[in-house]
Amino acid sequence: MVKFTNPKITIEKLDFYYGSVQALFDISMHVPEKKVTALIGPSGCGKSTFLRMINRMNDIIDGTHHKGKVCIDDQDIYGDGVDIVALRKRVGMVFQKSNPFPKSIFENVAYGPRIHGIKDKAKLDDIIERSLNNAAIWDEVKDRMDKNAMSLSGGQQQRLCIARALAVEPEILLMDEPASALDPKSTARIEDLINELKKNYTIVIVTHNMQQAARVSDYTAFFYEGNLVEFDHTNTIFTKPNIKQTEDYITGRFG
């Protein structure tokens, strides 16, 4: 397990339960700043649940609870008096299935800045253009900002969702299998985009596509049945993993 002297996110002895069913077991891990960390493992291994711990999305599920700590910049995000709204502003999220709001393209990206109190039209326009640019979709949509976002293609919708997340200027970007529902060409665009984005953002990405993890990430964590089996440089994980289970999974012996 790699450790970092100055991690962006620190997870300590995290257990997580859906009702009485335990989904995460004693997970400790560091996530480095401005790098891409991939979470891999077979379906149901807890990688998505783990991802949703980082912006407290699991809070909205009835009957869940946890033990242990999740810290961002040394602040325990589950501590007393933590403002969830401010937290989620710092930690953006892109979902597996693109979920543009059934509003115009403009309104989709403006949604976040607006709820955080930005009313000035010029400023809003500026944020929106920058976000769409950063998500590499500006050129495709700049002439039809008032069209409904549902009219975009799947790949465009997902990049719009990334732009929407970027518009609130987060520090961390969580991506839950962002390309699993897309065709190869759109997937390649998203992967290029991730490479661009890591200059400015700490990215944690869940994927069950191992080639994708190998292509886009700097570090990789392998989850199995709610446990963190191995966490190391992506290179190490894919070339000479320390643990047999990881190797079996990487080489396709199970999962």
């Binding site: 909205i60 502003k89 953006g92 997340a165």
Partner: peptide, 15 residues
């Protein structure tokens, strides 16, 4: 109304 619309909004920091 799909749950994804709620999650999408909450994840942006909406109350």
């Amino acid at each position: 109304v799909p749950q994804s619309l709620r999650e999408g909004s909450l994840a942006l920091g909406a109350t």
